[in-house]
Design a protein around this nucleic acid. Structure first.
Length: 360
DNA sequence: GACTCGTGGGA
DNA sequence: TTCCCAAGAGT
C-alpha cells in the first residue's frame, strides 16, 4: 500500500480533527510526556486525567518526584492500578536526576529506563524529539491490523514484532519532527475515536480508501487475538482491628504481588485464622462479619471477607507490622487499594472539622 | 513464551 | 452476567 499517503492523511486528519487539549498535550517537556505515557499504560484517558492533574500539582518536575518518599508517590497512584508502574516511575525519576536531570535523547536509550518499554519509549521520543519511531499500543495494533488486513494472532510475541516492522515501514524516510508528533498522536486519536473496537466509524475515517481490512470486509474480525485469561476464585480474610476512636490498623503489603507496597488490613489465608481473637483484641467481644466484597482483577476474582475486632484500649501496637493506624483516608493521602479505600470511606469516622469536602 | 500485575467502562 | 480491553512492561 502507499505508505506516504497513509502518513500524510493521518497527519492532516490529526491536525484538523484529532485531540489537542488533553492535560499532557501542548508541551514537549519529557517529564510530563513520560508521566502521562506511564499512567496511560492499559488505562483509559478519562481515568488518568484526574490522577495526572493531582500528580503534576504535587510533583511538578522530575526533581520533586525523585525527592519524594515512595509512600507518597504510591499514595498519589492509589486507585489507578498496576502499582509497579509507580515503583518504576519513582526509580526512573531518581535515575534521571542522578544524570543531572537530563533525559535520554532517543527511544533506544529511553527504553533502558525502568517502566519504559518499546511503545512508551517510542511515544516519548516521537512527541518530545520527533524521532522517526513507531508506537504499537492497543490503538495502533487495532488500527494497523485493520488497515493492513493483518490477521496474525496478536497474543503471540513474534506476530507483534512483525506488525511493529510493518508499522515502522509506514514512516516516510524524511518525516519531519513535527509530523512525527502529529502522526503518533494521530494513531492514538484515530484508534480512540474512529477505529474503535466495536462499531468503528469507517465512513468518517480519513484513510478508509487505503484500508485493506475494509476492502476485504474483515474489519469486524480484526485484530485477531487468542487466549483469554482464566480467572481463579480466591477468598481473602481481612483482619479489621478497630480502635475505640474508630481508627483501623493497616499493614504495608509485601513488595511483590497484588497491591505491592500499599496499605491494607492484614490478610489471613483461612476463615479459621480470622475468627481467632488476635492478641490485643478486647476480651469477651465477638468479631463483626461485614458483607463480602467481590473484587475482580485481571487473573483473579477476590472475595474479601472483612472480620472486625475491637482493639483493647490498653493494648500495645498490633504485632502485624510495619503498619499504621488510619483515622481518615483524606489528608495526607494514603496508598490504599481501591476496594479498601471504598470501604474505609464508608466506615471510618467523619473527619475532624468535617466539611472541607476534600476527604477523598 | 507464558504469567503476572488493577481498575473501570462498555457491549 | 460475563467478557474484553484500555497510550504495556517486567519477570
Amino acid at each position: 500500500m502507499a505508505q506516504a499517503l497513509f502518513f500524510d492523511a493521518l497527519v492532516a486528519w490529526q491536525r484538523r480533527l484529532g485531540r489537542h487539549h488533553l492535560p499532557w498535550q501542548g508541551t514537549r517537556d519529557p517529564y510530563r510526556v513520560w508521566l502521562s505515557e506511564i499512567m496511560l499504560q492499559q488505562t483509559q484517558v478519562a481515568t488518568v486525567r484526574p490522577y495526572y492533574e493531582r500528580f503534576v500539582q504535587r510533583f511538578p518536575d522530575v526533581r520533586a518526584l525523585a525527592q519524594a518518599e515512595s509512600d507518597e508517590v504510591l499514595a498519589h497512584w492509589s486507585g489507578l492500578g498496576y502499582y509497579s508502574r509507580a515503583r518504576h516511575l519513582h526509580a526512573c525519576a531518581r535515575l534521571v536526576v542522578q544524570e543531572g536531570g537530563r533525559w535520554p535523547g532517543s527511544a533506544a536509550e529511553l527504553q533502558r529506563l525502568p517502566g519504559i518499554g518499546a511503545s512508551t519509549a517510542a511515544a516519548i521520543a516521537a512527541f518530545c524529539f520527533g524521532e522517526r519511531v513507531s508506537i504499537l499500543d492497543g490503538n495502533a495494533k487495532r488500527l494497523l491490523a485493520r488497515l493492513l488486513a493483518f490477521g496474525g494472532d496478536l497474543a503471540h510475541a513474534p506476530t507483534q514484532r512483525t506488525l511493529w516492522q510493518q508499522a515502522q515501514g509506514l514512516l516516510p524516510e524524511n518525516a519531519s519532527a513535527t509530523d512525527m508528533a502529529a502522526y503518533t498522536q494521530g494513531l492514538m486519536d484515530l484508534g480512540a475515536q474512529i477505529c474503535t473496537r466495536s462499531k468503528p466509524r469507517c465512513p468518517e475515517c480519513p484513510v478508509a480508501a487505503l484500508c485493506l481490512g475494509l476492502a476485504q470486509q474483515r474489519v469486524a474480525e480484526l485484530p485477531h487475538k487468542s487466549r483469554r485469561s482464566p480467572r481463579r476464585l480466591e477468598d481473602w480474610w481481612l483482619l479489621l482491628l478497630r480502635r475505640a476512636d474508630g481508627a483501623i490498623w493497616l499493614q504495608q503489603r509485601p513488595p511483590r504481588g497484588i497491591w505491592a507496597g500499599l496499605y491494607a488490613p492484614p490478610v489471613l489465608a483461612t476463615q479459621h485464622a480470622a475468627l481467632q481473637a488476635p492478641p490485643g483484641a478486647r476480651a469477651g467481644h465477638a468479631p463483626t462479619l461485614h458483607p463480602v466484597i467481590s473484587h475482580s482483577l485481571t487473573h483473579r476474582e477476590l472475595r474479601l471477607h472483612l472480620v472486625q475486632w475491637q482493639w483493647a484500649a490498653d493494648a500495645p501496637e498490633p504485632v502485624w507490622g510495619p503498619g499504621r493506624w488510619l483515622l481518615s483516608v483524606g489528608q495526607p493521602p494514603v496508598a490504599l487499594p481501591a476496594p479498601i479505600r471504598t470501604w474505609l470511606l464508608e466506615h471510618l469516622p467523619p473527619a475532624a472539622g468535617a466539611g472541607t469536602g476534600f476527604e477523598v
